[in-house]
Computed example of a mutant assay.
Amino acid sequence: MTVQVFIDGAVGTTGLEIAQRLAGREEFALITLDEARRKDDAARREAINDADVVILCLPDDAAVAAVGMIANARTRVIDASTAHRVAPGWTYGFPEVVGREAVAAAKRVANPGCYPTGFIALLAPLIRANLLPVAWPYSCHAVSGYSGGGKALIERFEADRDIAWRGYGLAFGHKHVPEMQAYAHLAIAPLFSPAVIAAMRGMVVEVPLPLSIIPGAPSADVLRAALTEFYAGSPIVSVAQDFPAGGELLLRASMAPWDGLELHVIGSADGEQARLVARLDNLGKGASGAAVQSLNLMAGLDETAGLRL
């Protein structure tokens, strides 16, 4: 049976990359609207209700309005906006963390944010295993390709090629913090410091751990072994076993689309400090790749079908 899919917001970066991953796949048929109709609410409402699955690549308010257009009990939703990530009745679209069965059975799936994907992938398994405390003031430092900032930021970066790094969210209260806290199961909101760099795509997320003062914290080797066991058999998430070559991790401006997620636990020689580091593509596992992974599961297919791995 062919699954009818409508991407609402198909001309944005995330929507375009989802469509690329679905191109040529006989399991799915894309419902499309031409330029004249894609902003017409009546046409969108019809397409949404004709779809088996609608993928929302819209601003938060527009995503909420689109869900309100559903007038049947059949249409399922994957929302790539922030609007429903901690909303009741929505399943968080991180199969490795919440369970593949939960995503496969869900009617409403909230696609994770790109930064939270790295943060939650690193911390949630370790906190769940009681290796790190729930009540600790974790911090998160992260850099992303400028595509992660949306259309307006893309335009600003491409208009001024002299900018190499742009720190933002300096006023606190970043919209990703609620899901970071909720799905890492933290009692204290993390201190989140995001930035974008002069590359279109790619992302590094880091959580520093002062092991010597964290109550009950084990060694970096124990943390790495726990993550390795948690993600064992995953075709998408890998845990590096070796120290990064030369003590460096790289993001290249020429990075090709990639839907994997690579995790590192890097410990100091004296055992007093560690760095949890995630490397991913903010447009891949951080956005479009994650949406396609959830779509595959919801359609009863191999979760990696169509992904760039």
Rank of each mutant, 00 (worst) to 15 (best):
C114L: 15
A225T: 01
E46I: 01
G300I: 07
A10R: 02
A256P: 01
K107P: 00
E179W: 00
A19C: 04
V237D: 03
D242G: 08
G300F: 08
D8R: 08
I127E: 09
L186G: 10
S294D: 14
A269S: 07
L191G: 06
R100W: 06
V207Q: 07
E248D: 15
A129Y: 00
K151P: 14
V11Q: 11
V5T: 15
L186T: 11
R25E: 01
I188R: 14
A65M: 10
G93Q: 05
I154N: 11
E26M: 03
S234N: 15
G93H: 08
E27G: 06
L186I: 12
I120K: 01
L307V: 07
S294H: 04
A102V: 08
R108N: 15
V237Q: 06
S212P: 00
N72S: 14
A305T: 05
A71K: 06
L249Q: 11
V222K: 12
K151V: 15
F119D: 09
N130R: 15
I213F: 03
V196I: 11
G216F: 03
T304Q: 09
A121N: 07
R76K: 13
E46W: 00
E206N: 00
W258I: 03
V97E: 04
G9I: 11
L309Y: 05
A305K: 01
L122A: 03
D40M: 11
M255N: 15
R156P: 00
V207C: 08
G286W: 05
E272S: 13
